[in-house]
């Protein structure tokens, strides 16, 4: 995905409350506020509906269904979906899939990001070009050959490795690492080199501690890839106890739901379980998108 390339830049500028000449943060014009509030309502409403629906026993598609009385609330839908999908197992599968991708991205992404930003070696330009190119190759074109290779030739169907492999190193995260390492002053590294430190040592004790925010940014944007991915794990896993939650829930939507008493309630319950970690992680990580006061590493 060429996607979140711009994240760090977008967030770097976030809240800094710069006092404007005439209009301070306290006096936002009404049309603008109404527009933003309307936008927020449109974006958040389906999530509210999902949450409410997951706790109500009877499906009520009318307007009244938006505000159920508190005594109607129940956990039955969560029991329902757990009965047919095994939430714990699928969450563990999603976790291993996502965790594997994050681990490989952090380890190998830091190495290549550091090399691209601070090391001078033959072929660096080529590696950089490759990284940019990869972000515009539509993954779907590769689905068929990857399926033949990974599932048929290597026999990695129904395995975590088969799920992880095509996503293993997130190129956007590599780009983020490179951008952060690029902001570190070269003198810092040259000084360490004069003192006789090897590159791996420099990376471990100087560079990585200085780019902590980059780590969080990279983890966040790497997380939403595999956690939300449907098509690839859907192709790789046929056994139910290997499927990530997104795949089991989709299968439930297409096949099983017709037989449940309150299919939408159960689906919403599963959807909440699937959505919660991503939403929570993003809200918690929000403030880490802001800090990039990296220059202080040398000045201080």
């Amino acid at each position: 995905m060429a996607g979140p390339t711009t994240l760090p830049t977008a967030s770097a500028v976030a809240p800094a409350p710069r006092a404007r000449p005439r209009r301070g943060p306290g006096r936002t014009s009404w049309p603008r506020m109404v527009l933003l509030a309307l936008g927020a309502l449109l974006f958040l409403f389906p999530f509210y509906y999902m949450l409410v629906g997951s706790f109500t026993a009877e499906p009520d598609p009318s307007l009244g269904g938006l505000f159920p009385s508190p005594d109607e609330l129940t956990l039955a839908n969560y029991r329902d979906i757990d009965g047919s999908v095994d939430l714990l197992q699928t969450l563990v599968n999603s976790g291993i899939f996502t965790g594997g991708v994050i681990l490989a991205t952090v380890v190998f992404g830091i190495l290549v990001g550091y090399a691209l930003a601070q090391l001078e070696f033959r072929g660096r330009g080529a590696v950089f070009g490759l990284m940019l190119l990869v972000q515009v190759v539509p993954f779907q074109l590769l689905i068929i050959p990857l399926y033949v290779l990974i599932v048929r030739d290597y026999g990695l169907a129904d395995s975590y490795l088969g799920m992880i492999l095509p996503f293993a190193i997130n190129s956007t995260a590599v780009f983020v690492f490179r951008q952060y390492f690029l902001q570190l002053p070269r003198d810092l590294f040259d000084a360490a080199r004069i003192d006789g430190a090897g590159e791996l040592r420099i990376l471990r004790s100087i560079a990585i501690p200085l780019v902590r925010p980059a780590l969080l940014t990279a983890v966040l944007l790497t997380f939403i890839g595999p956690w939300n991915e449907f098509l690839w794990p859907f192709l790789v896993t046929k056994e139910q106890d290997m499927q990530p939650l997104a795949v089991s829930l989709a299968n439930y939507i297409t096949n099983v739901s017709a037989r449940a008493t309150n299919p939408f309630g159960a689906i919403f319950a599963g959807a909440c379980v699937l959505a919660a970690p991503a939403v929570a992680l993003f809200i918690a990580g929000q403030r880490y998108f802001v800090s990039n006061d990296i220059g202080s590493g040398v000045k201080g």
Partner: peptide
């Protein structure tokens, strides 16, 4: 955050709604 929430959520989850 509210503008960004649909983007970070799995399509499988919001499709249901």
């Amino acid at each position: 955050i509210s503008f960004y929430v649909p983007y970070v959520t799995a399509s499988v989850a919001v499709v249901a709604v």
